[in-house]
Amino acid sequence: MFKNSMRSMRSMRLLQSLGALVALLLGGWSLPALAALHVFASVPEWGALAREVGGERVNVFVATTAMQDPHRIEAKPSLIARARGSQLVLATGADLEIGWLPLVLRESGNGAIQPGQPGYLEATSVLRLLEVPTRLDRADGDVHPGGNPHVQLDPRNILKVADALGERLIRLDPAGEAVYKARLADFTARWKAAMQRWEKEAAPLRGVGVWVQHRSFIYLDEWLGIRELGALEPKPGVEPGSAHLAGLLERQKASPGRMILRPAYASPKSSDWMGEKAGIPVVVLPFTVGGSPEAKDLFGLFDDSLRRLLAALK
């Protein structure tokens, strides 16, 4: 820390300007040196995963909450300040954070967390994405060229990201290798056991037809064999109109869905309307950690999601 502030003092002296003077004064007043590795997670699920794998050795900051639409985040000053002090940025990728994260990273002035550096990890870099568009046209709505980025609701994806995160933590903090390895092994074992339980519990959901608000649940559907009949949004990111919803009601008569799925952050208006007209329950899924009181961590996220889905079947 002392060496760092010496280096900053030297370069600052070159400036000989007002800003530099104040900078010098503030250089001594930086955060105390903490042993923990500072992890900046773009969304709550990766923050929760970093806590599972990193434990006490990491200090996790989560940039967004479950109540925020992950597509509409702003490059807030507080995020730039947090990115400045981070050693690892764990993001989803596949353009989910394109509206804010690239700017936050550039504005932070932190060279270690720029894309391409060891301090930057995208979850989707180790996953197989679904719904990769074969044509790119903004007339199709808010499409993600890399595929659907809402990967966190397939627990198999969580395992893969956990592995990649473990490797990356060891690379950035070699002294903690034993801790990370042990925590990762422990998490993997607990997660696999939970997955077996979830798959057993979720058996009644196989083949069940559902409507969705936004195409946020395709990984969950693929994992559990839930049949997605269609989305309330006519195009990704476009609010449903009444004509479109009326069309869906007609389709509901022909091939009835059992429920409507909506993430916690989405507006209840259209799904509630459709649920009432079609006489089927609207299931508000936490979507990520913190999306419901029960979804306190990754295990809670899946426990609560399944509980809500199964309750709607009854």
Binding site: G19, S30, G85
Partner: peptide, 12 residues
């Protein structure tokens, strides 16, 4: 960008 918990940036 100052290494402070809140955003603080100087420029010239």
């Amino acid at each position: 960008v100052a290494p402070t918990p809140f955003f603080l940036e100087f420029g010239t």
